[in-house]
Amino acid sequence: MDDAIVSRAASGSINWKEPAPRSCIRGAVYTDSGDIVDDSERPGGTGSDLRVVTVNPRHLTGKERKEAADHVVRGPWLYAGSWMQQFGHFIVETLPNLWPLLRDEEAGAVRGLVAHRFTSRRRHPWQDAMVRPLIGEREIHVVDSTPATYERLMIPSRPYLYRTAISPRAAEVWKCVADRIAPEDASHPSRVFLSRTRFVDSLPKDAPGRARSYANSGAVDDLFRQRGFMVVYPEELTVADQVGLVRDAEIVAGAGGSALHLAAFMRSGRVIELGDKRSRTNLIATQRAIAAVKSQLIVHLPFHADFRGAFDVGSLDERLASIID
């Protein structure tokens, strides 16, 4: 699209009694006449999808269009959607939007990426680490409160629509990143267990992340260690090392959530998702989508609590043995 307007970004809370959505975001691409480009919007806001709804106007005001006209960016650029600050959502939402870079005729043409911030202004080093294998040292613009006009902007269709559809293009991007990002001397364990124990221990006592943790997570780690798994604490490793560990694994296991979304970078193999208080008996939708497009065999081990409310390790061991032995 020529002379594409990238609107300002905004986010905030929704104060009402309904459980979802709880927050809202704003940020999309518009034509030079101010009409929204539907493919640029992030769908969502219901169920467990972060409870964040998109609230873009269908037509930009003259004031915002004028402000965008005062900030013109020359050359061709690629729109990457929302610059998600959540690790798992960045893997399944932001990263797959870079699929045009896998086409030789487009990869060399763009000057860089432009995206809208999501609900946070914070930038993480791991975000750059994931996209650099595809774009090299080209620029990354994360738009916040100042709209801009891009001389030429490529707006790709989104490979992943939460709970609706996922395209093989997502798997193509993950494969390319996995092939390029992992260090040469990466170890290649056949079985990897992605533990949340140390991450949860580092959280404040009232942090929401603790609600999903197991009271006996150390015992769960020990069980997987005894079953031949390399127990990994992802937050202590670089992104490159995390991808390198799972890429060639035969089995990757872990509690449902962001860390287990690293299974997107596996070349082949099986995935074991442990249930928790949030997803006791059902696969997390995003994990199911990753497994579908990667043709992975995936098993969900339901959360069964013992008399203390902790994970029943004996029951877990029996189910685990039936899968891997």
Results as ranks from 00 to 15, higher is better:
D185V: 03
Y30D: 07
E139D: 14
R196F: 11
A289T: 15
Q242H: 14
P96W: 11
A215F: 10
A28R: 07
A80S: 09
A240D: 07
D49C: 05
S217N: 09
R278E: 14
A9V: 01
Y162T: 04
I25S: 00
V192A: 01
V6R: 06
P43K: 02
L101Y: 05
A107R: 04
K63Y: 05
G136I: 04
I251K: 10
A10L: 02
A20V: 09
I251E: 04
H89D: 08
R74M: 06
L50G: 09
V313L: 13
E137S: 14
H300V: 02
P159Y: 06
K66W: 11
Y214M: 06
D241S: 01
R58A: 00
Y30Q: 01
I251P: 02
L153K: 08
V200Q: 05
G27D: 00
A182M: 08
F90H: 14
T281P: 14
I323A: 12
V92N: 14
A253I: 04
V143G: 02
G218R: 04
D38F: 07
D39K: 15
A289S: 10
L316D: 03
M84H: 10
R247N: 09
T286L: 09
A182S: 10
V313K: 04
D38K: 00
H188G: 05
A148K: 10
A148G: 05
G254Q: 06
E139G: 13
Q85L: 10
V92A: 08
R122V: 07
F87M: 10
L260A: 12
P302Q: 03
R22M: 03
T149I: 06
D38S: 03
T146P: 01
G81T: 00
S268P: 12
P43S: 04
C176Q: 07
I324F: 06
L297P: 09
D32T: 07
S82E: 08
R280V: 12
V6N: 04
D3M: 02
S279K: 10
Y214F: 02
Q226T: 13
E41V: 02
I25H: 03
V271R: 12
H89M: 13
K175Y: 13
P302T: 07
D276Q: 15
N97S: 14
H71N: 04
A240H: 15
D144F: 01
F199V: 00
A80G: 07
L245D: 11
C176T: 03
E64M: 02
S190T: 00
R51W: 12
S157L: 04
T149C: 11
H141Q: 11
H300N: 14
I298L: 15
T31M: 11
H261G: 11
L260C: 12
G47W: 14
F307E: 14
A69H: 03
P76H: 07
R308C: 06
T281G: 08
T281K: 13
L262Q: 13
K17W: 07
D206C: 00
V131I: 08
A255R: 15
P208D: 04
V271K: 13
S145I: 01
G44F: 09
P234G: 11
F229G: 14
G88S: 12
H304C: 05
